Simulated scan of single mutants.
Amino acid sequence: MKNYSTVFLYLILACLFLACAENTDAEDPVLQEDFASRMEGEAYLGSAKSTLFLHGYEKLPSVDGEGSFSLAEVAGDSVTLALVVELTTGDGFTLGIPGIQIGSAWKASLAGGEFAIRDNGEMSGSVITTTQEISWDGHLFADKIFLDVRSKYLIQEDNITEGSIFLTHLELYRSSTQGGSSGNDCKNIVWQNRAVFNIHSGGVDMMSVPVCTD
């Protein structure tokens, strides 16, 4: 009788352990979805503010604008991200960054460096191209992104001298709606094909990016 009771007790404990493990997995967002699933279907849109430091130290007036960050293409574990900044002066920049997802994280390993988004949302990295050194630093949350992008000119481009630094701060919010209002205050978002600079190839690709048409 004592042996049967002991076996029964072990069975109960084993069932409780398995049930707890299943609940833990269901509640853990990292185990529940990969990076593409986190990003897919909903864009981040919001404000951008850029400042040019001519020669690296002469600060010019800041310029406001709009920005977006989205999933451009997914093929297996290959995931391309698109960052678009449009300023009120008509200037701005685009970045198409092909990388790979590693669970809920993402990484782009390029010839001149790398960009990464870690499991906890931390964004870091820098890449050197033939004309610029580009770095980003920020954080990807479930409902928003705070991101700083820094571009240092390695050669003169038009009136922008070598050594000049272009800083852009972005505050972007998820386009998903809760309670009838969008997190980024845009009521009508459409996806359009736009020419985006591919930082890997150095060329321009057509990518589907979100556009607010309010």
Rank of each mutant, 00 (worst) to 15 (best):
M1K: 13
N3I: 14
N3H: 11
F8D: 08
L11D: 10
L11H: 10
A14C: 13
C15S: 15
C15F: 11
L16Q: 11
F17Y: 08
E22Y: 08
V30N: 12
L31A: 12
A36S: 14
A36N: 07
R38T: 00
E40T: 09
E42P: 00
L45H: 01
G46H: 03
S47D: 15
S50Q: 12
T51S: 10
L54K: 10
L54S: 12
L54D: 10
H55N: 14
Y57S: 13
E58R: 14
K59C: 12
P61F: 04
S68V: 01
S68P: 00
S68K: 08
S70E: 03
S70Y: 00
E73P: 03
A75I: 08
S78I: 05
V79W: 00
T80K: 12
L81T: 02
V85L: 07
V85D: 00
E86N: 15
L87F: 01
L87P: 02
T89H: 04
G90F: 08
F93V: 03
I97K: 02
P98G: 11
P98C: 11
I100A: 10
G103P: 05
A108W: 02
A108K: 03
S109T: 15
G113H: 05
F115D: 03
G121K: 10
E122R: 12
I128P: 02
I128L: 11
T129N: 08
I134R: 01
L140E: 01
F141K: 09
A142F: 06
I145C: 04
D148Q: 13
D148I: 09
E157H: 10
T161I: 02
E162V: 13
F166E: 06
L170R: 06
L172S: 01
Y173F: 14
T177Q: 13
G179M: 07
S181W: 09
S182P: 00
S182G: 11
G183F: 02
N188L: 11
N188S: 14
W191T: 11
W191H: 13
R194Y: 06
A195L: 14
V196F: 01
N198L: 05
N198V: 02
D205C: 04
M207K: 02
S208C: 07
C212V: 05
